[in-house]
Amino acid sequence: MKVSRTTIGAAMLATTALIASHGAWAQRAGGRLPPECRTPELRKCLTAGDNRRQCIAAAFQTLPDGCRKSVSERAAARAPLPEGAQELSFGTDPKQKVDLFRPAASTGKAPLLLFVHGGGWSIGDKRTGTSNKPGYYTGKGWAFGSTNYRLVPQATVEQQAADVAAAIALLRRQPGIDADRVVLMGHSAGAHLAALVATDPTYLKAAGVPLSAIRGVVLLDGAGYDIAAQMSQPRNPVATMYQQAFSSDPARQAALSPTSHAAAPNAANWLILPVARRADSVRQSQQLAAALRAAGNRAEVAPQPDKNHGSLNREMGEPGDPSTAVVDAFLKQL
């Protein structure tokens, strides 16, 4: 069956939405499928009719790394500075930037919620996974930040964690921000980075940020809290991604595993939301929470039913979203 350019364009949109955590703006992105993405697996999906989106989702991990990067970079380049956002730089690399949204009305210094995007440590952008979060949380009196970080393989995971810490340090210095009330929220690989920064004090210390400033951590469907355990899973569909990010060195894998750093000190309050149907995410979440509780921290695991990896993040901040309600209750307790 001949595949039309229109069909390829539709697949481009679907692939972009997958890679970009289903950002609403991705649905408006145009362009043809990059040459790096013209694989037999993806071309088969183009003829799958109503099952096209599910087919692309299943084929996502088989796409070449160059494809994922190409589509992600195209999508990021099309994303303009959101209305009401201020872009700030915390380094000289183009990726060392963070978007800051301030609450519409504030009678004093606002607490800060900083979002760390996902993308397998190698793709993604600060504007691809925020969806409704900026408007929702600024409407509740929070300052909201969404940060970029340098990407693998041009940078290491250690440098990514340092970038997240540097973004926190920069935002804490901004007028109107309560420097001692910071909550980290991360999705997927961003959940791993948020957890690493909030357990291993090395990164915040280097950035001049006291660990006590991190009042809470919200993790959205991460599965990389114990790197070695995750990489040893049979039929791991993301094995190549983990290998590229963490190598085969057991000592380095342990050093980059938040569970390995869960002995005190840590951020004090944790909410971990795995997708209920993802056994690896639930298992890793429960193990991290158990280690954090053993060290005297408060850590709740709330597996989310009726969600998938993308929708948990994409729907955060939507009216009536049950996962948002769980996060709201956690933030009120802080």
Results as ranks from 00 to 15, higher is better:
Leu288Phe: 05
Ser248Ala: 11
Gly296Cys: 08
Gly310Met: 14
Asn236Arg: 05
Asp125His: 13
Thr15Arg: 08
Ser311Glu: 14
Glu83Gly: 12
Glu41Gly: 11
Leu312Gln: 03
Ala229Thr: 09
Val71Gln: 00
Gly224Glu: 14
Gln61Asp: 09
Ile272Asp: 05
Arg172Cys: 12
Asp125Asn: 03
Lys95Tyr: 12
Thr107Cys: 06
Pro134Asp: 03
Ala11Thr: 13
Asn297Arg: 15
Asp280Thr: 15
Val282Ser: 07
Ser122Ile: 06
Ala264His: 10
Gly186Glu: 03
Leu63Asp: 08
His309Lys: 12
Ala325Asn: 03
Ala290Ser: 10
Gln230Ile: 14
Leu193Tyr: 11
Tyr242His: 10
Ser257Asn: 02
Lys126Thr: 07
Pro34Gln: 01
Val197Arg: 04
Arg235Ala: 09
Thr324Met: 04
Asp163Asn: 04
Ser70Asn: 11
Ala77Val: 02
Met1Ser: 15
Pro201Asp: 01
Gly139Arg: 00
Asp321Lys: 09
Glu318His: 14
Phe90Glu: 00
Lys97Thr: 10
Tyr149Phe: 02
Ser4Val: 07
Ala207Gln: 01
Leu193Met: 05
Leu184Tyr: 01
Asn313Asp: 15
Lys205Thr: 12
Val116Gly: 00
Leu271Ala: 03
Cys45Gly: 05
Pro175Met: 03
Thr130Ile: 13
Ala76Leu: 09
Ala166Arg: 05
Ala179Thr: 06
Gly118Lys: 00
Ser72Phe: 01
Asn297Glu: 12
Ala194Asp: 05
Arg314Asn: 14
Asp93Trp: 06
Asn313Trp: 08
Thr7Met: 15
Ala57Glu: 09
Arg283Ala: 10
Leu88Pro: 11
Phe330Glu: 00
Gln160Met: 09
Cys45Met: 03
Phe246Leu: 04
Ala105Tyr: 08
Met316Cys: 08
Ala155Phe: 14
Ala295Asp: 11
Arg78Ala: 12
Val282Pro: 07
Ala75Leu: 09
Met12Leu: 07
Ser4Tyr: 04
Ala325Phe: 07
Ser106His: 04
Gln160Arg: 07
Ala279Leu: 08
Gly108Cys: 04
Phe330Tyr: 06
Gln27Ile: 15
Arg5Tyr: 15
Tyr242Asp: 06
Glu158Leu: 11
Thr259Glu: 05
Asn236Pro: 11
Val301Tyr: 06
Ala245Thr: 00
Gln154Tyr: 05
Ala206Cys: 01
Pro305Phe: 06
Asp249Cys: 01
Ile8Pro: 13
His192Met: 02
Gly49Trp: 08
Ala24Gln: 11
Gln243Lys: 11
Ala57Asp: 07
Arg283Val: 10
Leu271Tyr: 02
Ala289Thr: 02
Ala302Cys: 05
Leu112Met: 01
Leu114Asp: 01
Gln233Tyr: 14
Gly141Asn: 08
Ser146Cys: 07
Glu315Gly: 10
Pro134Gln: 01
Asp65Lys: 03
